[in-house]
């Protein structure tokens, strides 16, 4: 099961037939295992990794990391507030942190104004939010293990013994 995940994490387009060959299983067994993981929510979805700088589309290419300080609530701690925040479609990631602030919220927007208006109009005024610090990302080099540029041509000769 774990090896199927490892293969799909690297190439979500690998077919059950191909995975079956790699692992010495039947493709039916692989397809079943994948279905099961999808059902159980182990595999949530399959996405392509886009290098926005190359895609030329203006959409959602401004990204900011926002440190958020919260007042914890009785019984539920930070969970309720986090939920209210991460439901906004502008929020692409949301983490509870140790250290000097509570939530790290990653926000994406078409331009600087959409991001800043999200912070000033939606996030900051929210009850329980004590303060925010916004950092805009200037350039992305590597994301989730993927280096965001065309891989260089291999330098090894095409044949050797």
């Amino acid at each position: 099961m774990n090896e199927i995940i490892e293969i799909l994490e690297r190439d979500a387009r690998a077919t059950p037939e191909e995975i079956a060959k790699m692992l010495g299983m039947t493709s039916k067994a692989v397809a079943l295992a994948i279905k099961k993981m999808e059902k159980e929510g182990i595999i949530l979805k399959y996405k392509a990794i886009i290098n926005r700088e190359m895609s030329k589309e203006e959409r959602n290419d401004v990204r900011a990391l926002i440190e958020v300080k919260l007042t914890p609530q009785k019984n539920v701690g930070f969970d309720h507030l986090a939920e209210r925040i991460y439901q906004f479609p502008e929020v692409t990631s949301c983490y509870l942190m140790s250290g000097t602030y509570d939530l790290l919220v990653v926000v994406e927007g078409g331009n600087i104004h959409t991001v800043s208006s999200f912070v000033s109009e939606k996030l900051s005024p929210m009850e329980g939010v004590r303060g925010t610090v916004t950092h805009f990302i200037l350039k992305k080099y590597k994301e989730d293990g993927d280096i965001l540029k065309q891989p260089e041509r291999s330098k090894r000769p095409a044949i050797s013994l």
Partner: peptide
């Protein structure tokens, strides 16, 4: 497309 190499890729 090389499958001729005697070293890691």
């Amino acid at each position: 497309i090389s499958l001729g190499v005697g070293e890691p890729d």
